[in-house]
Amino acid sequence: MTLTEEKTPRGRPAEIKAVPVRHYGRWIAAVLIAYVALWAIHSVANNERFGWDTINAWFWDGSILDGIVMTLELTVIAMLMGVAGGVVLAVMRLSPNPLISGVAWLYVWVFRGTPVLVQIILWFYVKALIPTFSLGIPFGPTFVHFNANDLITAFVAGCLGLGLNEAAYMSEIVRAGILSVDPGQSEAATALGMSRAKIMRRVVLPQAMRVIIPPTGNETISMLKTSSLVSVIALADLLYSVQIVYNRTYQTIPMLLVASIWYLVMTSILTVGQFYLERYFGRGTAQRQTMLERFVANLRIRGGRSA
């Protein structure tokens, strides 16, 4: 039997310096792709029909910027309604009380089963169905009356249509997140004497977040663009704002490009935000890196393999 101590110390060997494998195929592909990309950029940039002057002239226009603000407001409000409603619906859906879970199921069935465009229009015309709203006890006395015309403005209709529809989708995402948490977690919390509500809030939901956040970021990015549907009820979001302009100037394509570029800018910013949210809720499980660090690390790995 030999022990390591008895051996003569050899020290750490020198780092291996071998010639890495050359990926000639990758180099050829890179050159080809760069060539095609250059050609595409060149032809788009020099195509007058894209109307780069028009895009440039309108890109920072006040009406467009107002439209962006409206789009962002709608997205934020609809997503807040969606997330809050989604959590409530998901918890209801998982309730042991069949009546409560049934109501949640019914909600999802209705709001996920009909087109969001239809829902927005219906909310806009809800005054035709219910001319006045009253606050009070059903079948009993009423305290306050609202005229539906004053209460349901185009903005409110847009928020309701987008937000209530989103809640149905979010509830499925949250439910999947809750179900993804190891049952041992609630069991351990139960054994410690925690109440069901506390277990949900302190133990299950924070862990479910890791599963919930990525699709929610996806939903937010999707909502940013879905919110353009409110243009049908003449709400001046980004899309409606460019429509107003091209209805007057007939510069349809350049104006749509203005909107598209702005949508791209906004989704790019959201993507960065999503990265940091995911990192926050992944604490305790994933190593912490900034986006830049991860990018650099990836480059190193790639570089190490192909250089």
Binding site: G184, E187, A188, A191, V203, P206, Q207, R283, G284
Partner: peptide, 11 residues
């Protein structure tokens, strides 16, 4: 109670 799989809260 102590469990086989520990069940610590990972967050």
């Amino acid at each position: 109670m102590v469990f086989q799989r520990f069940n610590l809260f990972p967050h």
